[in-house]
């Protein structure tokens, strides 16, 4: 869990470095003020989900394959959903800017669905998980090289139905 937290914080720092503070995805920073005694949010909160569990997984170029790192993150997400049965999520599928608009909408749908299918395989009820694709419309990292594109090829679980922090 500690490693996860470091990884998540490292990601936030990376995003900020590349994209500027105002460009960091709002969902990633939501409820950041709810840090507990040990500097960690309460485990039942969305802040905990976003910052400690990790709200997003990443994909290779033009791929919707859930790799081992994404599997580890999604397994943690699934456990959190099992522990917080009132919570539901919309899984947003995103792409980098290196594709055409229609294709990227379809690819984003594939990615969101792949993440959702994995969560369902881990015991999360299907009716708690919606999907939406944004294609290349909502990048979080704005530069035009692989360091940013890798962050934009993502599926983000946007949680509701739990305390924010």
């Amino acid at each position: 869990m500690k490693i996860k937290a470091v990884a998540a914080l490292g990601l936030v720092a990376l995003l900020a470095a590349c994209a500027g503070d105002d460009a960091v995805d709002a969902s990633a920073g939501a409820g950041a003020g709810g840090a507990g005694v040990a500097g960690q949010p309460d485990p039942s909160t969305i802040a905990y989900f976003n910052q400690v569990v990790g709200d997003r997984v990443f994909f290779a170029f033009d791929s919707s394959e859930i790799d081992s790192q994404a599997q580890a993150t999604l397994a943690q997400q699934a456990q959190w959903f099992r522990n917080n049965p009132a919570a539901t999520a919309t899984i947003e599928g995103h792409t980098d800017e290196r594709g055409t608009r229609d294709y990227n909408l379809a690819l984003g749908a594939r990615r969101a669905n792949a993440a959702r299918a994995f969560l369902i395989s881990q015991g999360v009820q299907a009716d708690r998980l919606r999907t939406v694709s944004y294609g290349k419309e909502r990048p979080v990292a704005l530069c035009s090289d692989e360091s940013c594109w890798a962050q934009n090829r993502r599926a983000v679980s946007v949680v509701v139905g739990a305390p924010t922090s």
Partner: peptide
Amino acid sequence: MTFAPRFSPDGSQVVLSLAQDGNT
């Protein structure tokens, strides 16, 4: 989701993509 629409030349139909369960 539905996307990528275009009219038929006579305007009576629309072709589009529908993504269901991740497949378009």
